[in-house]
């Protein structure tokens, strides 16, 4: 009797239209609060503190004041922003182009192409970073220097100069992420009604016009999504540079990123308070850029739906 009543209460609870939605979103809400909201709040408090072994000491804004004067941090921000901008230039148009090509009738064995382009994303950055480090070794037996030697060029100290280092970083990034972004675009393309292309054909549109006036506008939600995650991923890059220079120290800090600097301060130098301030700056920069981008692209406007 008791049991049945309980069962009823439980069933009523579960089947209730009012509570059920909350029950279903609860796992997400919980993990969001525990693993996101709570750490973020404690990061904010820690950024105003000097974390010591025995406890924390409030230091007001001095961590931020130090950030303003910290040349290495400024360099890290410049590096990250530059890397982010360059990845956007490479990782938006090209994957979109590949996706359109694969979606068209021009390409045979589409499954193979998709797989080939996607596989790099499945490899560990630790492994691919190490391989790239070996490829870009300044020693004459490094792969890239052998390629240069084949064309009669002298060996280059790839990872000691800005242009060549960023070439290596961007190559690694494109190699890894082109396939993923392409899949996003591909799934976006699949959602475009074929009838639109047919009517465009009837109207006598060229391939370029179809791309410009049908494909791109209808891909917009996908583009915005890819743009948003790419901005954050670009700003938060760390492991690639950590592996490429076999550690967090690169010549004249050319490979230092914001997260690399956070790691340097927080983990290598055990200055959690200062590292928290660095982390918050990253969060604010990423938020500002993404908000600006989302507003500019009209994502928040309701009538667009």
């Amino acid at each position: 009797m008791e049991k049945k009543k309980q069962g009823n209460a439980f069933t009523r609870f579960i089947y209730s239209q009012k509570t059920a939605p909350y029950v279903f979103v609860l796992p997400f809400i919980l993990s969001f609060c525990i693993f996101w909201i709570y750490p973020m709040l404690s990061t904010i408090t820690m950024s105003f503190q000097n974390i010591k072994p025995a406890g924390a000491e409030w230091v007001g804004l001095s961590n931020y004041a130090k950030l303003l004067k910290d040349g290495v941090f400024h360099q890290a921000v410049r590096n990250s922003v530059m890397y982010m901008v360059l990845t956007l230039i490479l990782l938006l148009p090209f994957p979109m182009l590949w996706a359109v090509l694969i979606d068209s009738n021009l390409v045979k064995a589409k499954g193979v192409w998709k797989a080939v382009l996607y596989v790099p994303a499945l490899t560990s950055v630790v492994i691919s970073g190490t391989l790239f480090r070996l490829m870009f070794s300044e020693y004459k037996t490094g792969f890239m220097n052998q390629v240069l030697a084949f064309f009669g060029q002298p060996a280059v100290k790839w990872l000691k100069m800005y242009p060549t280092s960023y070439f290596a970083l961007l190559l690694l990034c494109c190699w890894r992420w082109t396939g993923v972004n392409m899949l996003y675009f591909l799934s976006g393309l699949k959602n475009i009604d074929a009838a639109l292309y047919e009517s465009a054909d009837i109207d006598g549109a060229t391939a370029w016009q179809k791309f410009r006036y049908v494909t791109v506008p209808l891909l917009k939600p996908t583009i915005i999504y890819v743009l948003t995650i790419s901005i954050y991923a670009g700003l938060a890059m760390f492991l690639e540079s950590f592996m490429l220079w076999a550690g967090n120290s690169s010549p004249n800090n050319i490979g230092l990123t914001i997260v690399g600097y956070l790691y340097k301060r927080g983990i290598e130098k055990n200055q959690m308070g200062y590292a928290s301030a660095v982390g918050l700056v990253l969060l604010v920069v990423a938020l500002i850029i993404n908000m600006a981008q989302l507003i500019a692209t009209g994502t928040f406007k309701k009538e667009e739906r």
Binding site: A121, L122, S124, V125, V126, V180, L239, F242, M243
Partner: peptide
């Protein structure tokens, strides 16, 4: 990929 990279961080 997310899992991979976090595991990788500790590897690093």
């Amino acid at each position: 990929a997310g899992c991979g990279s976090s595991a990788a961080t500790s590897d690093a």
